[in-house]
Design a protein around this nucleic acid. Structure first.
Lengths: 203, 203
DNA sequence: AACTAATTTAAACAAGTGTTTAAAATTGTT
DNA sequence: AACAATTTTAAACACTTGTTTAAATTAGTT
């Protein structure tokens, strides 16, 4: 059998991401990860020093990826309305592909707000600033009702997240299987989108 | 010092609720709870047999209380619009008083969906049924737009929850202190309420 | 092939976990 | 006051946790 250090490192990272997303930092054990990656327990520490360091690597990578794609939408030369629609669709897609992400971020941010702030800090401000300026311009022009973008931005993120953060809860409360939930989620997105557009834009 | 068994039991339950809400089942330890209740570690097992049994007691009590108050609103002889407003205000109040509840339920439901389903199961269906009938009547009358109550109910729960589930995240993302967040939360509620009413009701 | 460096392994470590135990302290009852 | 039952305690239990170690295996170089 050939031993490829890069492959092993990658295998651990992938498994760690999977397990951490599923169980959170507290719930996941180094042995869970090792088993998922099909490697010896000691190797996680050989490659990443500690559980915490491995976690922050996964955490940061997930955050960066998420921010980057949102940034890409915000940088497009399109109207606020188009940006919001794109943002809604994109966020939905991301969470649909990995329903654990929403609750994972909420959780880990609460478990260690400081760490989260350090990781995300600056990147987000710039993006937000850019959106805010455009938003307020359209408010002035009368395209958008008089409301602060600071209230709208988290609302949109939150509403999409909420669909998936409460996935298990919804599925068991309304006794849905996975396919039914997917349908339900799409319907939720449609309503959310209509609601936001109907609310923000004057006809 | 007088030793009152009931008080000790109650002290443990209260501390357990506080700690479980804060750290979740995985994050909380029996020693955390004992310290918070200012009692010996062994007493939690003396009174409640096991950590798991204590947890389910707290979990069920929180769930029942939450359902009961929602049920009370749903049983009132008022219109759907009035019920939705009351529901929004009530949910907001509950979560504002204890911001940890939202994320706690999401988490623990995902950690053990089966257990959640067993605890909540029947109670919820009856309540939902009652609301659904009234809702669909008003849809027929043309008061409410043509949309399923099954989509609206979780949306409202979710949107209020989302404000508080993402509390730490929002605070650090937008660099708010607690007072600023409280103001932000109220603004979020106002927008959510307006959004839902504007969306659901034909003028 | 021989040697060095890198990788992997099994085993153990110390610390923390939920839980139990047996003795001590307290309470209630006669 | 004396006894029995209940409650509380300190200590230990068995187990899991993240981490380390030292030996074994593999890869790369001359």
């Amino acid at each position: 059998m050939t031993t490829n250090p890069v492959d092993t490192e990658e295998k651990i990272k992938e498994a760690a991401q999977r397990i951490f997303l599923e169980k959170g930092f507290d719930g996941a054990t180094i042995r869970d990860i090792a088993e998922a990656a099909q490697i010896n327990t000691a190797l996680t520490n050989y490659y990443f020093r500690s559980k915490e360091k491995l976690f922050w690597l996964v955490y940061e990578s997930l955050l960066k990826e998420a921010l980057k794609s949102v940034q890409a939408i915000m940088d497009k030369p399109i109207s606020v309305k188009e940006k919001l629609i794109a943002l809604l669709d994109h966020m939905f897609e991301v969470h649909a592909q990995n329903p654990n992400q929403a609750i994972f971020f909420m959780n880990e941010c609460r478990r260690n707000p400081q760490g989260f702030a350090e990781k995300i800090g600056i990147n987000c401000e710039a993006m937000e600033q850019c959106f805010n300026v455009q938003f307020e311009e359209e408010v002035k022009k009368g395209i958008i009702i008089n409301v602060s973008p600071d209230a709208i931005f988290p609302l949109i993120f939150g509403m999409i997240q909420q669909i998936f953060a409460g996935r298990e809860l919804t599925m068991h409360l309304f006794q849905m299987n996975e396919a039914e939930f997917d349908k339900h989620a799409l319907e939720q997105k449609r309503i959310i989108k209509e609601m936001i557009l109907k609310y923000l834009f004057n006809e």
